[in-house]
Design a protein around this nucleic acid. Structure first.
Lengths: 377, 377
DNA sequence: CAGGCTAGTTGGAACGTTCAAATCATGCCA
DNA sequence: TGGCATGATTTGAACGTTCCAACTAGCCTG
């Protein structure tokens, strides 16, 4: 217990480096922040000492002097974590991965449920963060307006449908994704493409439905348009899919607004004694773990790109409301839209800019720790 | 654009409060950090001014002076986020929710994959965090030893099986969970309880298997012990479950090491023309979203308790290696272990200390934003 | 009534960095 | 050679808080 816990081990400061390199502290600071102001020889000497002493500038001192935390808040919500297609977990990861490129970091916080903005105000007023990434948007969401009024930098993941004027969002183009899915289904030889979606009135659902319709029109299949509605519940979805199958001609496919609805469709198909893919195509949305497990073709949100765009927007100076990014999802093709049996390898159309560290087929389990343990033993 | 972005709006400082209350800055500091040293009347006056001016102490200044960030690093890994049963997402959320109780916060960071410890060293040497919560543990994990050697506070989620002496972990008692599951199955009237687990050699898998065996012994059913093995893959699991079903007497049940294996078991049961629950009981592990969707009885990890214990351990002074917490999972009972059909409402044995904000049945979708939109419209 | 003790309060200093302005060579041109 | 711009470097001050030691007034004790 030489030095006790905490950051007590006395780390080298900028002054130690300065003394070692025989310059003043400001020159060391300049060597790091404004290298062009420092003579080449000096620069080299300083950097050698920085290396030798293992110096890293103290974040708190920088924050204090610069009056800027270089940190952004990310609200995590207990109600959705780990749930099927809870895309936010992945978004948070990609934001974290990309954060060092913008020399900043993320601080998680939980919302104050009774007074929503309080949580934001508290973490902001301590100067712990400079702004926020809003991982979701609610109906009548008070946050964007509040943040704008207080000139707090932010970006939202998901369009602010309530108010089209409100920029500063990143979103995935569900409509374009659906069009790609229709195109794929047609190319695979399916001759009629039905739609299993959510009831009218949800902006995202309506957007996806429009994509289906325009995809059909582009393919000259507008006359095959039949659809059913279901809320996000497996039993309801299965029943709706059953009704759809009764009307769907042979050689048809079902395009679904979510992986859960697609799961219902898969069940209905099997209940009819049919084989997904061979007899009826099924496509889901979000490329969740379930989609992978059940060999369900699904649209994958380009989270890595979304994270990069989010950083770009949140860092933009001023309160420019025209900063938006609409990204196209990519289709992960699996057996559920492959009429002829094929080896179940990875999708050929998978996003090329996927994280390179993503192993091709790492079976996840109860806890990530253990698959790797098994595999290594 | 009066003041530009960032934390530029001039916030009240401790000196403003001091002036307003007619005391010195140190007295204001004492009022917040050592109220017992301040006279009651003064204390009230100071607090009134704090309230009136909306003062919050600047985090960076505190960190700098106290030489302590009150922040902990949490490594997020791109390879697992959002995957089935990727329990870490939920753990991160619960840690975040509990963080304010310990007046600290979490900073996420991504690992340096080539030189694992570099990422830890960097974030630590800037003083951005005081320690770490290791969300997973790998085989031959170098991190605990390194952190100990450097006297960095930490806690791991998951026992360090490689080295039983290495304390400072929180974990879920898979063995006890399995015993509870066996007890439940017996109570439901299942007369033989088979096991579908991972191949020998994974500590977690072996632990769960032992729980099954001791549960059987307690129930006097040791002679019914039959088991099959499968890696974490749906096709393999289904095949293994098929073999198991060939040997399983009528009125039996299958206890599985994971929800994915249980998913395979469900498929095998249906392939045999049987009905899960009514004909064959099936139990999974992790209570993932899939378990909920498929009405699969499953063991749920007590993440909220785990988070509380983790904070307790990481905050403990010194390098005491005896700090551990082993928590029992709870069983969420669904149709897959209910022989007689019943209304598909929530489990009666669900964890009582579940987050109160968790709505009883909020169907999550592609993005959390939109179900709420639908529901509200 | 000197001396000491306690509760309450205060001012100086420090945490480690960057901003802003000052200093100091150096070279160029008139 | 004096004046002046230029580049490189240094010094003083500040960011907002807490640690530490000092100070005061009041009260008790011998």
């Amino acid at each position: 217990m030489a030095s006790g816990p905490g950051q007590s081990r006395d780390r080298a400061t900028i002054i130690d480096v300065a003394a070692a390199a025989g310059v003043s502290r400001q020159t060391v600071s300049n060597a790091l922040n404004n290298p062009d102001r420092v003579a080449p020889g000096t620069l080299m000497r300083v950097h050698r000492e920085i290396e030798r002493l293992g110096f890293s500038p103290n974040a708190a001192a920088q924050q204090l002097r610069r009056r800027k935390a270089s940190a952004y808040g990310f609200e995590v919500n207990p109600s959705g974590a780990g749930k099927m297609g809870h895309i936010l977990d992945g978004f948070l990861v990609e934001l974290t991965v990309a954060a060092p490129d913008h020399s900043c970091h993320l601080v998680t916080f939980a919302p104050n449920l009774s007074r929503l903005l309080d949580g934001y105000d508290r973490i902001l007023s301590t100067g712990l963060v400079d702004g926020f990434v809003l991982g979701d948007t609610r109906h009548d969401d008070p946050r964007p307006a509040w943040l704008l009024a207080n000139e707090v930098p932010f970006v939202t993941f998901g369009r602010i449908w309530d108010n089209p004027e409100m920029g500063r969002w990143v979103d995935v183009d569900g409509r374009a994704g659906m069009e790609v899915a229709v195109e794929h289904l047609v190319a695979q030889g399916y001759t009629a493409i039905a739609y299993l979606g959510w009831p009218d009135g949800s902006p995202v659902g309506d957007d996806r439905r429009r994509g289906w319709l325009s995809g059909l029109a582009d393919a000259g299949l507008a006359d095959t348009a039949i659809a059913e509605e279901a809320v996000q519940d497996l039993t309801v979805a299965t029943a709706a899919a059953e009704r759809l199958l009764d009307r769907l001609p042979s050689g048809g496919a079902i395009l679904c607004a979510s992986d859960l609805l697609a799961l219902g469709a898969l069940r209905a198909v099997r209940n009819h004694g049919l084989e997904p893919g061979r007899d009826v195509g099924v496509v889901g949305f979000d490329d969740s773990d379930v989609a992978e497990a059940l060999q369900l073709t699904s649209l994958r949100q380009p989270l890595q790109d979304a994270a990069a765009e989010a950083w770009r927007i949140v860092h933009a100076k001023g309160t420019d409301l025209s900063l938006t990014a609409l990204l196209a999802p990519t289709l992960t093709v699996r057996a559920s839209t492959t009429p002829t049996p094929q080896s179940p390898n990875e999708s050929p159309t998978q996003s090329p800019n996927q994280s390179p560290v993503h192993p091709p087929r790492r079976p996840p389990l109860g806890r990530t720790a253990y698959p790797s343990l098994e595999e290594q033993q």
